[in-house]
Design a protein around this nucleic acid. Structure first.
Lengths: 397, 397
DNA sequence: CCTATTTGTCCTGGACGTAAACATAGCACT
DNA sequence: AGTGCTATGTTTACGTCCAGGACAAATAGG
């Protein structure tokens, strides 16, 4: 079933360590890799050589500022790319993301109505065909990552429920794979956002982090636990939006009452500053500019409820940092002191005082980076898997 | 800082895999180890040989029931032991636990008052000295594990707060190590209970499990995430008892109102069946025997509130199983249908329907097994570390 | 007693990383 | 401009480890 151990296992791990370091921590000198990976110069040389032969990294000379022989820079090859797709209610966004985390292209295809799965597939195929010249030849397309606003069983590639898209109990991986002829992975958007923020964003470098994102469709999130993303039994973990914070409160579409996302809600914020959904971009400015009592009251109300949920999560996870995205980030900006104080005071025995609260650092590229990261994960774990000529137009032997 | 990789790293991992398998999954034949560890007969032979030379495992012949050469049984040596100590408000319990998970001795030392740290240390030393004949000579004492009813920073061995013991901001590892002259680890009792249940108890074999324990001192718990125990940044994770389930409810000692443990509470249960604290053992029988309205109402009230918390946790963790210990197990037994239905209905999109609810399988030995497991963890990860003659009465070369 | 089957043991070969010696490339000082 | 210093890449010898194959051992079934 699983591969034999052998000494090749060691090599796999070391190749993985080097490639992962180059991917996550930007270009690094070989000397830096020696330190970071705890390997000798000889071994790093061999590993970088192999990765270079596989086309996964390349080296550049660098003007040395220090005494001693200059160490070449090892770059993760940005020509090794993943496609990233984020279907949403009003658009399907397709991205091309290179190893190293750069988003090379980002194409937002606006839809007149909520896209069906079939439409999302067709749009994606069309956009990718439009990019084919760009992708062809030199680039190596590893696969496609799907960021789905809903519950996704990552193992089997099934969407259990994506309420706002109206997708339910469908295999999403199959159709995309069939249409594009490449490996496809799918996961919940907030889970992928967590991944992205934990690697390249505000939670980078923390082993235990929480991420909560607030959007028009509710609140989702994810956790990094001991450096690893929390998936749960089937990839559904991180539904922080349905934590009950006001029992007997408003009815939630999930069936319960008083879920966090029925109370802490972008609609309520828009309403107090007289904006509509289309003007969500201006929410932050409007909130900060309007200091009237109803506005302040609503900010406080939502801040306090959010703080209860965050306090619960601190008690549960004991994280080092909590990253807030979307309108939750706006809420943090609107009254950081209050949220900070409430989170510090809530959890047992002052645990909350040590938790950092940060806004998400990645903007529009968050989900594309996260989805690509899910694709890269396989390669990073097993760099040699790139070997059997896995070009975009696959041809089985 | 950390050790170099080398091929010895492979050996370490393989030794660890074999020893861990023998420890967790009882005696196994070498043939079974070959399958389980994905290694060849030659390698398993070498590994078992080395572990045997280290005194960590031994082999026995077995009457083969199958055709073919019989494969010897590999047993984790139960003569390699850990001491386990659980200080509580009315007693200090000391145990001797062997590799393989057997509790060889369990000595409960009742105290007339809540023990101070100093008293706990002295009691432990006295009990261990009483066991010295038993421990001396043939046995190999790896160290001592402390199960503390409170917040423990496992990394630094500090108790942040153990409210019922009255310990606060004290180094617990230091005094015990000084008094006993052996390595000491400390952790929260519920965290260790989680570990024990996940290895030898009801959660064995599950990669994603939750454990909640209800005692006179409140509700604590822990999680297994992707097969690994959830620790958090400093080991404080798993404080499920302080999840707010009824905002504005009763004041909790933690400062907030309506924490789970202020509402779901053994005192309230004892009260409705007219028992006092000392009669807690009889709670289950009393609850099941008394079918009066006030009793049923209190059971339902607590069941419903517990279900809210469990529903939140299912949304957060997406676990395969939830294990309930202490009076929470009693509550499950009292009205399994109701709790089951509420947990199934609560979480989003029917996630709860797939979650198993089980009572804790380990009884009085739970914490001793868990504390010992924390001690064994180091050995299991690095079996060769046993080498430099680490006898109970240590004698540096 | 013989055969099939399963498993332990021994031996050889290949893969891998380490360590140490050597080579190289830039800086800094004179 | 030259010389030494220093940090780093490169090459080679060596040890460890595991896989795989040949052989031996031990048992059940006929």
């Amino acid at each position: 079933m699983s591969e034999r151990s052998g000494t090749e296992d060691l090599r796999r791990r070391n190749l993985s360590a080097v490639l992962t370091a180059a991917h996550r921590h930007g270009p690094l000198t070989r000397a830096a890799l020696v330190q970071r990976c705890n390997l000798t110069r000889s071994t790093i040389g061999a590993l970088v050589g192999e990765l270079s032969a596989l086309g996964l990294v390349y080296e550049t000379d660098v003007a040395a500022a220090r005494v001693g022989r200059p160490s070449p820079m090892v770059h993760a090859s940005e020509r090794v790319v993943a496609l990233a797709v984020n279907p949403d209610v009003d658009a399907v966004t397709v991205g091309v993301v290179g190893l190293g985390g750069m988003v090379h292209r980002r194409i937002r295809y606006n839809t007149s109505s909520i896209p069906s799965l079939e439409e999302a597939v067709n749009i994606t195929r069309a956009v990718v065909e439009g990019l084919s010249v760009e992708l062809a030849g030199s680039e190596h397309v590893l696969g496609l990552g799907l960021a789905i606003p809903g519950l996704v069983n990552a193992e089997v590639g099934q969407v259990l429920l994506a309420p706002h898209l109206g997708w339910k109990d469908v295999d999403v991986v199959g159709p995309f794979r069939q249409a594009l002829g490449m490996p496809v992975v799918a996961a919940n958007d907030a889970t992928l956002g967590t991944l992205a923020e934990s690697i390249f964003g505000a939670a980078a470098g923390y082993s235990d982090a929480l991420y909560l994102n607030g959007s028009a469709s509710g609140i989702g999130g994810g956790a990094i636990v001991g450096g690893q993303p929390l998936g749960g039994a089937s990839g559904y973990a991180g539904e922080f939006g349905h934590m009950v914070t006001r029992p007997g409160g408003e009815q939630c579409h999930c069936g319960r009452r008083g879920c966090l996302e029925t109370e802490v809600n972008v609609d309520r914020l828009l309403k107090v500053v007289n904006l509509n959904h289309a003007q969500a971009e201006q929410l932050e400015d409007a909130l900060l500019a309007t200091q009237t009592f109803p506005v302040l009251r609503e900010i406080r109300r939502q801040t306090d409820l959010l703080a209860i949920a965050l306090g619960n999560l601190v008690n549960v996870f004991n994280p080092q940092i909590i990253v807030l995205g979307g309108f939750l980030g706006v809420l943090l900006a609107a009254d950081r002191e209050r949220l900070s104080a409430a989170v510090a005071a809530g959890p047992i025995s002052g645990l909350g005082t040590k938790v950092r609260l940060e806004r998400a650092a990645l903007g529009a590229e968050l989900l594309l980076v996260g989805a690509a990261e899910a694709v890269f994960a396989g390669l990073l774990a097993e760099p040699r898997s790139v070997a059997p000529g896995q070009e975009s137009g696959a041809s089985p032997s």
